[in-house]
Write a protein that binds this DNA or RNA. Structure first.
Length: 587
RNA sequence: CGGGGCGUGGCGCAGCCUGGCAGCGCGUCUGGUUUGGGACCAGAAAGUCGGAGGUUCAAAUCCUCUCGCCCCGACCA
């Protein structure tokens, strides 16, 4: 491809509004163009990279035995009513009514396709002999993000590979899941990503039935905890906290005292007013566990974890109690709840950390007042003590004696054992070998294809621009023509371009009539892995100047045999990303 | 949905407080000189100052409303 014949609108300056590296660089390198918040046009360069990621995903899905199909973005609303996901998705779901004659047909623009694929299975799969089977597609998904952000990392419309496995037994599901898990590892490795599979909140089957594939990066929206000692990794939602002994500090135990805290109800304000750290406060949260109010105690600087509360209570549904329930239970307005002197007798669940607290501050269960010098055992007794809070940096690893580190990260893939949630609500049943009718056992597996690009740019860039791995780079090689116009060097460049292309490489020839400096800057900005400079200096000596994007200095190779040399390098690199990955060790 | 910031030629910004001819840099176009890391000189085109209403002799500037974008938070199978 000639640079002058394609469309690569690079920018010297950072566009207003872009902040994180991937957003800035994807705009500056002319990969994407913003249409509105959360919607981007993929320009030729961005689209080429996206297609390469898509191709790797497709190849590995095929290799794993999944079969490709394509489902429509539009689907009837009633399917989503049957699974209850109209409510579950809420505003995220993009819906409209299609006028059909005098009728209105309510449709949903698919945010994912469990409903549609399960409906297909319900119609087409009737025997255990038809399974196991895994379907996949790579299509556009719609999710009305209330707050799209971070460029292409979080958009309302995106390309997703979604796969769904159908099995007759749990053992078979486990095999299907493992195959997808392994395929994901191969995909992200081939893409040159440094990923970390983490345990995620699991579904109805339990166990380690869900994993997210994360790319650790400062600007990620998700938090993960990782123990380097044993390798345990989980997202913050899921991460357990290792048990430890709680020895209270050796201070005299204070008397309980009631203090006035007019209009001061938040942890931040209370701690400021009473001049104590938030960690001295006990946060009392009133939750509804299957509709019954309970009190949950966590340290003031900790966050309650609803998944853990659900498991501790054995409830299926956990939600924060509405203000009227809080007032009824505590006898005080919201913000003054505490474990001492609750108006109604409700179960109290305390986070383990509460055991280590001495002379704490709690709400007084009356307006504009708190209690100080409160101690567990003397002043209140929880019904149950358990791990109820979100894990934090430095918490103990639940699997070994190590310490976990917290990192931000971007989720690029998710594998999930669904079980029979959808097959039951959509009546997808099969006749098993024992002549019994049973619900199909499902798994689902997603990859955000756009996020592969964004995550790569986010984690691979320098002051000059993007540094692509060859596997995903829009072009393998950029030929930088130094002297324009100049017939002999143009002819040599065209010849090289054609021969490299014939050898299977993606070649971009920068034939623009501008100064060499501009071309070098642009080549670096758009991040093409291999740069070949064609100038009369080298041509006279029968040499070509070559440089990998991440190398500091260029080297010379003979013009004779250059095509074979370059093709060998690039084809190898495209497969392994070996040089790309090795560069980090040298840093 | 709460909090904050920003909308001025294609891009990045100044001007606004204290109302008085709409500016700068980059880019674009023309001519010339240059030519291996974002060249230089001369000239040119291009802006309903996000939109609506109001105050005023006069509004980019002050007031009211509104739309959009970005950031933080809430939300996110």
């Amino acid at each position: 491809m000639l640079w002058s014949k394609t469309f690569i609108p690079t920018m010297k300056e950072t566009p207003e509004g872009a902040e994180i590296p991937s957003h800035v660089l994807m705009l500056r390198a002319g990969l994407v163009n913003q249409v509105m918040a959360g919607a981007y046009t993929y320009l030729p360069l961005g689209l080429k990279a996206l297609k390469k990621a898509e191709r790797i995903v497709r190849e590995e899905m095929d290799a794993a035995g999944a079969v490709e199909l394509a489902m429509p973005s539009m689907s009837p609303q009633n399917l989503w009513e049957q699974t209850g996901r109209i409510q579950a998705f809420g505003n995220v779901l993009v819906q409209t009514n299609l006028p059909r004659g005098g009728r209105k047909v309510p449709v949903v623009f698919g945010p994912t396709h469990e409903e549609i694929i399960t409906d297909l299975a319900a119609r087409q799969i009737s025997s255990y002999r038809q399974m196991p089977i895994t379907f996949y597609q790579i299509t556009t998904k719609f999710r009305n993000e209330e707050r799209p952000r971070f460029g292409v990392l979080r958009t309302s419309e995106f390309l997703m590979k979604d796969a769904y496995s159908f099995d007759a037994t749990v053992e078979s599901l486990n095999e299907s899941y493992d195959k997808m898990y392994a395929a994901y590892c191969r995909i992200f490795t081939r893409c040159g990503l440094e990923y970390l599979p983490v345990e995620a909140e699991s579904g109805p089957i339990g166990g380690s039935a869900s994993h997210e594939f994360m790319i650790p990066t400062e600007n990620g929206e998700d938090s993960i905890l990782h123990c380097k000692a044993c390798g345990y990794a989980a997202n913050q939602e899921k991460a357990e906290i290792g048990a430890r002994d709680f020895t209270k500090p050796d201070f005299p135990i204070a008397e309980m005292q009631k203090v006035d805290t007019p209009n001061v109800s938040t942890i931040e304000h209370v701690s400021k007013m009473l001049k104590c750290r938030p960690s001295r406060l006990i946060k009392t949260l009133i939750y509804m566990a299957n509709g019954v109010p309970i009190a949950v105690l966590v340290r003031g600087d900790h966050d309650a974890n609803e998944g853990k509360i659900r498991r501790a209570t054995g409830a299926t549904k956990i939600e924060l109690a509405p203000p009227e329930v809080i007032e009824k239970v505590t006898g005080a307005p919201v913000g003054f709840a505490g474990p001492v002197g609750l108006k109604e007798q409700i179960p109290i669940y305390a986070d383990r950390e509460i055991q280590g607290m001495l002379n704490s501050v709690v709400g007084a269960n009356s307006a504009d007042a708190h209690l100080t010098g409160v101690n567990m055992g003397r002043d209140f007794t929880p019904d149950k003590i358990d791990d109820l809070r979100n894990a934090l940096d430095g918490d103990a690893c639940p699997r070994c004696s190590g310490v976990m580190a917290m990192r931000h990260s971007v989720e690029i893939g998710h594998v999930f054992k669904l079980g029979t949630k959808y097959s039951q609500s959509l009546n997808a049943r099969f006749l098993d070998s024992d002549e019994q009718l049973k619900p199909i056992i499902m798994g689902c597996y997603g990859i955000g294809v756009n996020r592969i690009l964004a995550a790569l740019v986010e984690t691979n860039n320098d002051a000059n621009g993007i540094v692509w791995p060859t596997a995903i780079a829009p072009y393998d090689v950029v030929l930088t023509l130094v002297k324009v116009p100049d017939e002999p060097s143009l002819a040599a460049a065209m010849k090289l371009h054609d021969e490299l292309t014939a050898a299977g490489l993606d070649v971009l020839l920068d034939d623009r009539d501008c100064r060499a400096g501009v071309k070098f800057k642009d080549a670096d900005l758009i991040g093409i892995p291999l740069r070949v400079v064609i100038g009369d200096r080298g041509l006279k000596e029968g040499k070509l100047e070559v440089k990998w994007r991440w190398e500091k200095d260029a080297s010379m190779i003979d013009l004779d045999g250059a095509v074979k040399t370059l093709a060998d390098w690039v084809l190898e690199e495209r497969k392994t990303n070996a040089r790309f990955l090795a560069r980090k060790n040298g840093e």
